[in-house]
Design a protein around this nucleic acid. Structure first.
Lengths: 131, 131
DNA sequence: AAAACTGTATTACTGATATAATACAGTTAG
DNA sequence: CTAACTGTATTATATCAGTAATACAGTTTT
């Protein structure tokens, strides 16, 4: 079953979006696939220490995207087949790339400069100034 | 004086942050420098079509960072000298690069993949799906 | 001094987020 | 069948970010 040990919540974005993205990534990477059961809303919310409604919000959005399938009473299952997972993987990468590009563009960087900066800082831990 | 014609507001991030970053960038690029006057909160807010307090929020943060100097009654002026502007330029680039890197890391991309995606999508306009 | 500007402070409204407490209905396991 | 689980829906509350409206106080200008 889906392991949620690797999902660590931060405060940078809404919890329901973090859950949403995590599950998308797990599907994209093949950790879970078509037909697999998801933990129930109540169980997952207990695991993560959040409110059941927060999990429900994420699941509801996944349902709307056709990524999972839910029937009242039964556990939700993955509805995305292998082809859908591949599309999801491409989509996720493109979305992330575009977000990053938008950020870099906004600061007036050229493509060349942006690539060089990413090269430079990718492996470098952020400096602590502490002041 | 500082031209705000080149500042176009979008809805992707808070207005006050867009204003804040714009002014930082103008200082970093040398468009405005030490001693230059900024337009008043009210004038700028009218120019941008936003609330004066939204501008105030940006200016207040700039003041806290020591980038501008404000006295009640008089217009705010740039407090950052040339050295500070240079530091600002480097800082802006690093901050943007790190934000972008964080985004890309979160989706499990390697540096190589990230660079390739940015190469690929930099010049491509986003697709419209429209449904 | 007075008018017209300036920065500053306070308060309020809105929407998004997160949580909570229930309630209801369908499925599954015993 | 029944108990214990499921998903779903509703309503309420609290908080925060962002924006807005307004009042107040200091300066510059005339």
């Amino acid at each position: 079953m889906l392991q949620f040990d690797t999902l660590t919540l931060d405060s940078h974005s809404p919890i329901y979006l973090q859950i949403l993205r995590f599950i998308k990534q797990e599907i994209a990477s093949g950790t879970i696939c078509y037909g697999d059961e998801l933990p129930s809303r109540r169980v997952l919310s207990a695991l993560l220490g959040v409110n059941p409604n927060t999990v429900q919000k994420a699941f509801h959005l996944l349902e709307e995207e056709g990524i999972i399938e839910s029937r009242a009473g039964a556990k939700s299952v993955i509805a995305a087949d292998e082809a859908a997972a591949n599309r999801l993987r491409a989509e996720l990468r493109e979305v992330e790339a575009r977000s990053a590009i938008q950020l870099l563009r906004e600061s007036g960087l050229t493509k060349k400069e942006a690539l060089a900066l990413i090269e430079q800082f990718w492996d470098q831990p952020p400096e602590r100034s502490d002041g």
